[in-house]
Amino acid sequence: MNRPVPPNADVWRVLKLAWTLVGIVLAQGILTRYFQVFAYFDLPLVYCVYHGFTRANRGAAIAVGSVLGVLQDSLYGTALGTNGFAKTVVCFMAASTGSRLDVDQWVTRVLALWLATFSDVLLKFLLGLATRPEDVTSYPVTPGAWILSAACNVVAGMILFGYLERSADDAA
């Protein structure tokens, strides 16, 4: 016998997701304010990969990537649309490949997070070149900073995946 679904379950789910997205973007800014090392992390990007892999819903991925990107752009002074564009693509790609790959394998997750970081920087750079070439004077991130950022995102991603899986197991 199926458990009855509360009447406003969908509304609550959307509100919970919205609060999660706002929380992630704010957490990124607040943590970086107190611990500079968090400048190398991109928590919204990590969540994009997590959401894409676990839900494998491409429509939802477009919405989540867009909202996270626009929130990030608004709070941190990037040209509006820059992170929205990059995060939408990353989240969509994660959702598209999530159903075809074994996302429970840690190797898959590490590679995905690494590729996501690279794609995010590259997409923002290309979008900048396409829309405001006069403002793009050099590659935005040095190779060292990019590698460090990718490593940090992998660590954050593995912790997030592990923590949420454990929570799901406990709930079951």
Binding site: I30, Y76, S149
Partner: peptide, 15 residues
């Protein structure tokens, strides 16, 4: 008062 800091390696902004 500074209440936030930019999140990415390619930007240097404060809120």
């Amino acid at each position: 008062r500074v209440i936030g800091r930019d999140a990415t390696t390619s930007r240097e902004t404060l809120t």
